[in-house]
Design a protein around this nucleic acid. Structure first.
Lengths: 140, 140
DNA sequence: GTTTATGCAAATTCTTTGCAATACT
DNA sequence: AGTATTGCAAAGAATTTGCATAAAC
């Protein structure tokens, strides 16, 4: 993907494509794994963390990225796959390895739905599995 | 439940039943909703937060309580239902209301399993739904 | 008397905001 | 000019640790 692709992506979500925001969205796009704010800070030395944070907040509001929680160390962010402007519908389960502490996307899988009681309105679902990943499995 | 029940509960998990620990486990048992550390601090004025924290850490190690994450404000704790000493098997989905910010246990429901790829070993699953609860639904 | 638990204070870590300077339109 | 964005610094919030005292065994 080149720069103009990211600009289009930002614009599709009504985000003005500033230089910093392009860098942040690019960093997310190039990440295999969902990134925490701290990881993005480490990766993007040129932008202040408050600005990365503000970019992420904006991206989240515009449904360009979504947040996943429940691994261990705070919130992680990943690009939405479905590029809808007003909601996320590409939720997939995540797997947090208790040994290497990486969070994997289980992209091929769907988050199974549960039948919630009458009156609960579902907006989103976080499905986080914890355990040991194949790599750490074979180490032991 | 009276005090001796809590003592038995602690002992069943190989936890020495000190006065403080009895108070903490009692507070959890009397909570309808999973409690955060901050909520427990507010509820238990007699015990220092570092101690509540240490009790929770110990309880977690001994599988007396489990942690749920992904609501909004950090980790919440609830008693395990299955009183096994070495693992949790009573996971149920939780529902976080984005309006009133309460976390509900959907106790009647099971967490649906997903077929993870070969090599991933599942230890536990966090299923967190976000949306609007019946009460806040009817407010609007 | 040795180990364990406790309370207080403070260190850490992570997230979020204030504000002046800069860039954009 | 006027609005939006940025970097730096610092405020906040939440979690976790150090350590001296006190309690338990």
């Amino acid at each position: 993907m080149d720069k103009s692709t990211y600009i289009q992506l930002l614009e599709a979500h009504n985000i003005k494509p500033t230089a910093n925001r392009i860098v942040v969205v690019e960093a997310l796009a190039n990440s295999m794994l969902p990134q925490s704010l701290a990881e993005l800070e480490r990766r993007i030395q040129t932008i202040d963390k408050s600005n990365i944070f503000r970019a992420l907040t904006l991206f989240r509001e515009q449904h360009l990225i979504h947040a996943i929680e429940g691994g261990n160390d705070g919130t992680r962010y990943e690009l939405c796959h479905s590029h809808s402007e007003d909601h996320d519908d590409d939720q997939h389960p995540h797997f947090y390895c208790e040994v290497c502490q990486q969070t994997y996307c289980l992209e091929g899988l769907e988050v199974p739905q549960v039948a919630v009681p009458q009156g609960f309105e579902i907006r989103s679902v976080n499905y986080m599995i914890k355990g040991i990943c194949p790599h750490c499995q074979s180490e032991s």
